[in-house]
Structures are given as C-alpha cells and as structure tokens.
C-alpha cells in the first residue's frame, strides 16, 4: 500500500467522518446549551417572552420572584 493509497482511504473515510463529526459536535453543543437553559422557545428572542437573553434573564427571573413574593396569598 503506497502513501497515495493511504490518502485515498483517508478521503473515503472523510466523506463519512466530516458530516458525522459535525452532527456529533452540534448535537453535543445543543444538549449542553439546552441543559443549562431549560427548553428554548422556537421564537426569536425579540418576540420570546418571558424567558429572555441570559444577561437580562437573571434580572427578569429575580423580578418574577419578587412579584410572586409580593402577590397577596389567597
């Protein structure tokens, strides 16, 4: 088996491994991000409410907790 034959086998493998690699990488990333965020709404963040961007989401969560604490108990 020559060096060129090794390259040929590597290219046949790459046709499979490149799409598989992308799929594994993005599935893993999506799972990690969703685990941290909970279910992500499909709508754009501009229209998605009440869960907003993380940077101001924390403030929103605190605001919601405050409102719940202040709400009269029945």
């Amino acid at each position: 088996m020559t060096g060129l034959d090794v390259v040929l086998v590597a290219v046949f493998a790459a046709v499979w491994l490149v799409p598989l690699g992308l799929a594994v990488r993005w599935e893993r990333r999506l799972r990690t991000e969703r685990r941290g965020l909970g279910p992500v709404p499909e709508a754009a963040p501009e229209t998605a409410a009440p869960r907003m961007r993380v940077e101001d989401g924390r403030a929103d969560d605190r605001r919601a907790e405050d409102q719940r604490a202040e709400a009269p108990r029945r």
């Binding site: 799929a23 993005w26 999506l30 991000e33 965020l37 869960r51 907003m52 961007r53 993380v54 989401g57």
Partner: peptide, 16 residues
C-alpha cells in the same frame, strides 16, 4: 445538519 445547526443558532441567542 442544517436543521441541527439552525437549532444551535436558536439556543445561542440565550447565551452571552
């Protein structure tokens, strides 16, 4: 792959 990557973009919007 395009559908998966699109979902990654959607999830990214909630991360700084």
């Amino acid at each position: 792959l395009v559908a998966l990557r699109r979902q990654v973009h959607a999830a990214d919007q909630f991360i700084p």
